[in-house]
């Protein structure tokens, strides 16, 4: 690691002012991505601002059909929550036990790793991302590879999810890293069907062609007729774009079968 100044503010305001004053600061939440990056000297921030001591940023609360997850809530806590079983299931499959004991939802979605799990839920469960500055619709939040709608210095304080009538998350893990090669969250809310896909593209997205087909016929068989365009999908030694495209279909079917 390069040298940096470590800070552990106790309020959001203090954190933001430290960030504003830093030459090249970075927030630290769970650190599951940031710390390995620092260790390998792939980043050289001047200041690391640890959000871990700021009260009020953790916990899962349910209110009027909305589940609110504090930005610093660890994956293990979401995995143990009951309001949206599919979300808990998703969280229980992030990384490994140790990652789940440290990693946070805010850190995960602020990083916008194309292979992270949470983004599938953010786009599929009508999420709203609350930050220190504003609220961002889940569908507008991910903007590209490791890119989000967040501005400099903005901190994710909580993420609200709509409780669906039914939902299921299906993941095809990378055999080495256990990130998602493809992860699909299918949610049904009345007549509305959402299919959130992570792992396949530069960032999480909704598979609208699948949603339309499933809205017309919510059955696994409905997926068969949908041509999945994988031309822009990711490709690596673990899965070609074509295989990812195939997996999007397979996982969607399995999620639908779980719900239907």
């Amino acid at each position: 690691m390069y040298q940096f100044n470590y800070h552990r503010p106790s309020t959001l305001d203090e954190a933001r002012s430290l960030m504003a004053g830093a030459e090249d600061g970075v927030y630290l939440s769970g650190g599951m991505t940031l710390i390995p990056t620092l260790k390998q000297r792939l980043a050289s921030p001047s200041d690391v601002i640890d959000l871990g001591a700021i009260p009020g940023l953790t916990g899962v609360t349910v209110n009027d059909g909305t589940v609110s997850v504090g930005g610093m809530t660890r994956h293990s806590e979401v995995a143990a929550s009951e309001a949206i079983p599919a979300l808990a299931d998703l969280a229980s499959r992030i990384g490994d036990a140790h990652v789940r004991n440290r990693g946070t939802i805010g850190g995960s979605i602020a990083n916008s790793d194309p292979a992270a799990d949470y983004p599938a839920a953010v786009v599929a469960l009508g999420a709203t991302v609350h930050t220190t500055n504003r609220s961002i619709a889940g569908s507008d939040y991910f903007t590209g590879l490791f890119e989000t709608a967040l501005h400099d210095g903005e901190i994710v304080t909580s993420v609200d999810f709509c409780v669906p009538d039914a939902a299921a998350y299906e993941k095809f893990p990378n055999p080495a890293s256990r990130y998602a090669v493809v992860g699909v969250m299918v949610a049904r809310c009345g007549d509305c069907i959402c299919v959130g896909v992570t792992g396949a593209g530069a960032c999480a997205f909704r598979a609208t062609a699948l949603e339309e087909a499933l809205a017309a016929d919510f059955s696994p068989g409905a997926v068969d007729g949908v041509g999945i365009d994988h031309s822009e999908y990711n490709s690596d030694i673990h899965a070609s774009a074509e295989f990812r495209g195939h997996l999007v279909g397979v996982l969607t079917k399995r999620a639908v079968a779980t719900i239907a």
Binding site: G31, K39, G52, A97, H98
Partner: peptide, 25 residues
């Protein structure tokens, strides 16, 4: 890369990878 787990300890009652926790944390 925080994968192997040889460094796991318990911190506040949870198993964590001590190679991926800053001293300050």
């Amino acid at each position: 890369t925080s994968q192997c787990g040889a460094c796991v300890v318990h911190m506040n009652g949870d198993a964590v990878k001590s190679c991926t926790v800053l001293a300050g944390q």
